[in-house]
Design a binder for these strands. Structure first.
Lengths: 210, 210
DNA sequence: CACGTTCCGATACGCTCGCATCGCTTCGGG
DNA sequence: CCCGAAGCGATGCGAGCGTATCGGAACGTG
């Protein structure tokens, strides 16, 4: 077996190039040639790593999803001493991608979101990501609001008991959708990052404050 | 001036074709040839109506935006006797595009949203749409949460007002972003339309009821 | 009744795309 | 030692894109 190359690291390298390009000119601006040039490899190398373009996009989306999920868990692990409520706030701002340094990820995410509406393989990846995020946030919300005791059933699908913020799963869904919507509105310039952050804080505050 | 044709109606006809195609295969599946075929006109006719493809997309996006805005105002006008709160609920479900018959509009809207992140002309149109929607919803929320002269009896001036009542503008922004996020999550299959509607209702209920 | 202006549909063109192919280089193993 | 399998970069190919162009049809007008 002659001449080996670390395929996995090269795949990541290509995925990074995909993200940078998608950030600059959208997903339809991602061509195999440009990706190869940006990743500083030849076009043949890209074709060897991924049999088809869609396979490359799927890998890139999975890669981004893992990065975002890793950021959330890192945030949660790094600040364990604080209250569950502040932890929830931190995690939320982490997935909302509002900070300038995450603008690229936000654009890439939105591009994939739109593409997923007509591409089942991409939609499947997104669903999986959102499902795990929703699980995490449901638990966080339950912990943050559950100072009145009563640990929730472990795997119950959350029958809608009561209304409003008393249902952690519903609150988690609301939070995820709100974060995505705010991200999109910031990207198109309808809201400033600061405004979006204020909206997010107000919503979080209203969850248990009142 | 020989042989005249109603350009405006043909433009709308083409815009409809753009929407149907974008619904089926995304914005990058919208080619001039396919649009012409779907609109049952020749490709030259499309080129005469719009000098460039981007001009066509801009028109189509404006067209969709007007339709959605028109639906909101129609909803508001058609049910004036009800309370401001139910009017707000109706208007929100109207823009959330959750019903099956608006799935196409939702997909088109999401596609344009992603494209707008890298296309200033499209972003400008979206900003304008969101700005006017935000104005309408801010007013609705203020009326619903404040002491309005509507059919609803006066219910005490300040007793336990929801978080939205403090800042109607913030609540409107939240509602718009939440609606968009829910629409996206339904489109990729993370939420069912019914679930999204339940989340929306819960949020609206929490706005003033507490 | 021609005439010319204006609109129309089809076709041509240049370009770029994703994908396939082809020599060449580089190693491990018999 | 050298042979063959595996990695590599460059190039070719067919297709499809947006746009430009062109001959002919339609209709008000002198």
């Amino acid at each position: 077996m002659p001449k080996q190359v670390d395929h996995e690291s090269r795949r990541r390298q290509i995925a990074e190039a995909v993200c940078r390009l998608a950030d600059e000119s959208g997903l339809e601006g991602v061509t195999l040639r440009d990706v190869a040039a940006r990743a500083e490899v030849s076009m043949g190398a890209v074709q060897r790593c991924f049999r088809t373009k869609e396979e490359m996009l799927v890998f890139a989306l999975t890669y981004i999803g893992e990065r975002i999920a890793a950021r959330v868990t890192t945030r949660l692990v790094e600040s364990p001493a604080q209250s569950a409520r502040t932890a929830l706030g931190h995690a939320t701002t982490e997935i909302a991608l509002l900070r300038e340094e995450h603008r690229a990820e936000a654009r890439v995410w939105l591009a994939f979101l739109a593409q997923a509406a007509v591409s089942p393989p991409l939609a499947e990846i997104l669903r999986s990501n959102y499902a795990s995020l929703q699980t995490v946030f449901t638990r966080l919300i339950a912990e943050a609001g559950g100072d009145t005791g009563g640990t929730e059933g472990a795997d119950g699908t959350g029958a809608a008991r009561g209304k409003g913020s008393h249902d952690p799963e519903c609150a988690a869904r609301t939070l995820l959708a709100l974060a995505d919507g705010l991200t999109a509105h910031v990207l198109i310039g309808h809201l400033s990052p600061d405004t979006a952050l204020a909206v997010l804080d107000a919503h979080l505050g209203g969850l248990w404050g009142e």
